[in-house]
Amino acid sequence: MAEITTQEEQGIVALFPYLDDFCQAVSRVGSDSDFHGHEVLSPTSYHELMALAEERYGPSPVRWFTLVGALSGMCTGFAMPLLMDYDWPIVVGGKSPGIYSLPAYVIFGFELMVLFGALATILGMLVMGRLPNPYGTVYHPRITDDRFAIFVPKVGVESSQAKLLHHLGAAEVFAAAK
């Protein structure tokens, strides 16, 4: 996305080649006030990292998006044919208008539950993940390839934070702007 164009918020990026070192580093810097505002980046969703994310962010609220979407879809799926039936009754088998075929409408309730639930889930993934993010910085092309990274804002490569990250297993620490 956006290139490194501004120097407003300088910081450092530490690249880790090993997952175990990286998890240790993420656990270590998580609650440290010297690393306030840091970002953790990974090329994929290893189970170990997802466990750390759960500790850090708690259960994802995406589930509530799904639930609300699915329930509203189900209600819409039943309401739509019922209201349209009310608007223009189709008399079947000589039965008087006002007898609604609920079993047939289960199909619409189910299908719209899935449809709205899926759309709401996508919305939840985007909103909670703070996406779309047109101004996010790509610190290093290998972060989406085979390197793990921690970005620490407002510190330099000679700082104690940089030394600690080196000590924790970072193969490379370089300056970057957010």
Partner: peptide
């Protein structure tokens, strides 16, 4: 970008 927050959700 592959942040932990993005992956989590």
């Amino acid at each position: 970008r592959g942040t932990l927050r993005e992956w989590h959700h």
